[in-house]
């Protein structure tokens, strides 16, 4: 009996600790919690899968997928990097899409990249991964800046839809945009703020709010479940922080 009590004492704090201790052991986590989730309930949750390389071969283009398909009723996903000079990368609202997103972002130094998925009960479920980086992803000018005529391509969209046999669809698209952070000397912040993908009747599949750390000429990957297909093209619209509009259609 006494032995059994001892076990209980040992196990109980460990169980509580598992819920609150940052699995990525980042010195910045408490600050992140205060900034992104003030007064809200936050749990670390393996069902929010963040897939990224262990190191950034190109600090300007670190590829990440977030998959929260193991959670029910995800309302919103916020992505941020603890040690980036601009923390928030994007907000993703998977209105009629799977809670899955692929994108690339700029990383200034080694940092956790985290995704927090908010379920309808108001709880934030946080997953993440460490990415090592040599530095300079946010304070260096984009490669396209060096090429003449980038402004002629501004906000041009290329996109494609892949349909699976079960009628679920994958959508990939790229928007031509410098996505300047404002941290490179002499180049003011210039970035896409919003993208919405709708069906041809105007009902949204996804909404994205994007911020400075998203990579130049950003590429996104979304998954639309079976049963959401309509006749006609997908419609992408958006706007950057200078008011330039993005408008394009993607054939199914």
């Amino acid at each position: 009996m006494r032995w059994w009590c001892l076990c209980l004492i040992l196990v109980a704090p460990a169980a509580i600790g598992a819920e609150t201790k940052d699995p990525l052991d980042s010195a910045r986590w408490e600050e992140m919690r205060k900034q992104f989730f003030p007064g809200e309930r936050v749990v670390f949750d393996d069902r929010v899968k963040v897939s990224a390389p262990k190191f950034a071969e190109d600090s300007m283009n670190v590829p990440v997928t977030v998959n929260a398909d193991g959670l029910r009723d995800v309302q919103e996903i916020v992505v941020f990097a603890d040690f980036n000079p601009i923390l928030k990368v994007l907000e993703f609202y998977p209105d009629r899409a799977k809670p899955f997103l692929g994108f690339r972002f700029k990383l200034q130094q080694a940092s956790p990249v985290r995704a927090a998925a908010k379920t309808s009960d108001g709880v934030w479920h946080v997953g993440g991964a460490w990415v090592d980086a040599a530095g300079g992803g946010c304070t260096a000018p984009g490669a396209g800046r060096a090429a003449a005529g980038w402004e002629k391509m501004l906000n041009e969209v290329s996109g494609r839809v892949w349909s699976a046999p079960d009628l679920s669809r994958r959508v990939r698209l790229r928007v031509m945009h410098p996505m300047d952070t404002g941290l490179a000397p002499g180049i003011p912040a210039f970035y896409i703020e919003q993208l919405v993908l709708r069906d041809n009747r105007g009902t949204s599949y996804i909404r994205l709010k994007t911020f400075e750390p998203v990579s130049e000429n950003p590429v996104f990957t979304f998954d639309l479940p079976a049963g959401t297909e309509t006749a006609g093209p997908l419609v992408l619209s958006g706007v950057d922080n200078n008011g330039n509009k993005i408008a394009s259609t993607i054939k199914p």
Partner: peptide, 11 residues
């Protein structure tokens, strides 16, 4: 060609 995301290819 089959629409994989870059992070998926790496994995």
């Amino acid at each position: 060609e089959k629409g994989d995301d870059m992070a998926e290819v790496m994995a």
